[in-house]
């Protein structure tokens, strides 16, 4: 589904991704872990198409298409979803209106009829229950005045609405209390099926107690330096990242 090969990307002339590679198949959950400043969020932003990041070399194919060639909106319509680490507040744009335009753009791309007001409301209510988000938030402006936990749940709500093929969760667990963490994880688990895939970027192992990954990758210095099964996450939790850094630095 997703194939990333030797990806190099920089921001403001500074290279952050240095030969990143990853293969993701339908039905898989990949966790990407690693210390701060190793390029995890850069990867998420590059996949979503943020223009401030410059891809200098490498390739990314998504369902046989060149992802890097697409605008951010084309990627979203094709089924790539980024759950933002820091969801931005947008005063004056109502959640409901924003979501209605969004879902109908994605549907249009898939050749589906747009949802009318009644159908949209029905879908929205169903998905709101799914992530246990207060209905009142939908009448407010996008993320405006939302608590940290509400913002993250709102990302999962949007993911539930758009039903992406590939979802990238950028540190969705950071700043969440245990209840919110469980709600977010439940959302992901319920959405998971044989046809879609998740890349879960996280700093801590605790999210992986709830979202069980098929693969765990450790990122350091702009690329994956170690991959394994879910037990790797536990090892990292127990031993920290220093042993990996030492291993990598010793081979350079």
């Amino acid at each position: 589904m997703l194939s990333i090969k030797d990806l190099h990307a920089s921001i403001n002339g500074k290279e952050i991704l240095k030969g990143f590679g990853l293969e993701v198949k339908p039905g898989e959950v990949h966790a990407i872990m690693g210390p701060n400043g190793t390029g995890k969020s850069t990867l998420a932003n590059v996949l979503a198409g943020r223009e401030e990041y410059e891809v200098t070399s490498g390739e990314v194919t998504f369902q046989g298409k060149d992802l890097l060639d697409m605008s951010p909106e084309e990627r979203a319509r094709e089924g790539v979803f980024l759950a933002f680490q820091y969801p931005v507040e947008i005063p004056g744009v109502s959640m409901a209106n924003f979501m209605k335009v969004s879902i109908n753009e994605v549907r249009k791309h898939k050749g589906l009829e747009p949802l009318d007001a009644v159908e949209f409301l029905k879908v929205m209510k169903e998905k709101m229950r799914f992530v246990e988000i207060d209905e009142k938030l939908m009448r407010r402006a996008v993320n405006e005045g939302f608590s940290g936990g509400e913002k993250k749940r709102n990302e999962i709500f949007q993911m539930a609405m758009l039903e992406p093929t590939l979802a990238v969760l950028d540190e969705t667990d950071s700043g969440l209390d245990i209840d919110a963490l469980r709600i977010v994880a439940n959302g992901v688990n319920k959405l998971k099926n044989d046809g879609n895939a998740f890349i879960v970027i996280t700093h801590y192992q605790r999210l992986l107690d709830y979202i069980v990954p098929d693969f765990v990758h450790v990122m350091y210095n702009g690329r994956i330096v170690k991959s394994g099964g879910k037990e790797l996450a536990l090892e990292l939790e127990a031993k920290g990242y220093d042993w990996i850094k030492q291993e990598v630095d010793a081979t350079v």
């Binding site: 909106e73 990627r75 791309h109 758009l162």
Partner: peptide
Amino acid sequence: MLFYLRARGLD
């Protein structure tokens, strides 16, 4: 803000 909206499929 612009990127957030585009990342949800709005041109």
